[in-house]
């Protein structure tokens, strides 16, 4: 049949008493509660004084309420103030690092999703000798332990003179990840061949088919992948720590690393760490809230314009 269908609509089962739906909602609510409680705990901890957390461990409310952790994260408090609340003197140039994070995550997402989609198209929709072998080879990259890649990649970036540049930070993930290629290929496989055929009869070439059919039809998976790539890139820590020490390119996660323990056997500045984590997640939450409607629309649409 033709794959162009209308908006996803749920089938109706008006005649049946919806016990299943009630049970379903119960499970969903339970999952959401289990998901949210740790976040409440982060919030509660972030409004606490690190020095009081141990004594007030059982309180459901913040221990010794203070905004100190947030002041520390934003670099607003003096070293003395920070230390008095169990933090460290490290300050964070929040807006600069936020900008760096956005630049890095955005370029990684755009590059990686686009180039991986191109490759996925070739693996899913084109016929060429050695295709499956090359795809399997790509797939094996999934299994290459990161411990193999970190050191040589770091040396390479250094030899290219790209240390402390945006390019150096994004390059290893800019062109592909095996995950992205694999993910998109699986979805591209499912595209109805009739669409392609019709386009071809209209005289469309591969480039046009790719841009006008494959990409729009797979908007849902591509959006999903973009979201996941963005989050992964945003949270990446060790690589940017190695390559982007310099303030001018330092990303948020690296800057927030100072809230982890500073001495062997020392415990972290809990309040600062939690405040920093919430702060780092906030831009993404805002992004989703703003773009949410669009994302839903694109995910929920399986046809062609």
């Amino acid at each position: 049949m033709a794959a162009t269908t209308a908006l996803v609509g749920r089938p109706r089962h008006g005649r049946v008493i919806p016990w299943g739906r009630i049970a379903g909602w119960a499970v969903l609510v339970l999952v959401m509660a289990a998901t949210l409680f740790p976040f409440y705990w982060m919030l509660r901890t972030s409004f606490s004084n690190t020095r009081s957390l141990a004594a007030g461990a059982a309180d459901l409310l913040p221990a010794d309420f203070t905004l100190g952790a947030y002041r520390r994260v934003l670099g607003l408090s003096s070293t003395a103030e920070a230390v008095a609340e169990g933090g460290s003197g490290g300050s964070v140039n929040f807006w600069l690092f936020l900008r760096n994070s956005i630049v890095v995550a955005t370029s990684v997402t755009v590059g990686q999703v686009f180039f991986s989609a191109m490759a996925a198209y070739a693996f899913a929709r084109l016929r060429w000798p050695g295709r499956d072998a090359v795809f399997l080879l790509f797939l094996t990259a999934l299994m290459v332990p990161p411990i193999f890649t970190t050191l040589p990649n770091f040396v390479l970036i250094k030899e290219l003179g790209l240390l402390n540049t945006y390019l150096g930070i994004v390059l290893p993930h800019l062109l592909m990840t095996p995950f992205a290629v694999f993910f998109l290929r699986q979805f591209f496989l499912g595209v109805n061949a009739g669409l392609e055929e019709a386009a071809r009869i209209d005289g469309a070439g591969h480039v046009r088919i790719f841009f006008r059919i494959i990409l729009p039809v797979n908007r849902g998976p591509i959006t999903t992948l973009a979201i996941l790539t963005y989050i992964t890139s945003w949270n990446d820590y060790f690589w940017p720590l190695l390559v982007g020490k310099d303030e001018s390119v330092r990303v948020l996660t690296v800057a927030l690393g100072i809230f982890r323990s500073q001495t062997p056997q020392g415990s972290p500045d809990w309040a600062g760490l939690m405040a920093a984590t919430l702060f780092a997640a906030l831009p993404m939450i805002i992004l989703f809230a703003v773009l949410g409607r669009r994302i839903i629309d694109s995910i929920g649409y399986t046809g062609v314009k």
Partner: peptide, 26 residues
């Protein structure tokens, strides 16, 4: 050769990333 010429074009950027940042270190 099927779609080989086009396929190479489409796979090339990802292939460079694959060879440089995965295959060689592996």
């Amino acid at each position: 050769l099927g779609d080989l010429p086009v396929a190479v074009l489409f796979v090339l950027p990802a292939a460079i990333g694959f060879v440089v940042f995965y295959l060689w270190p592996a």
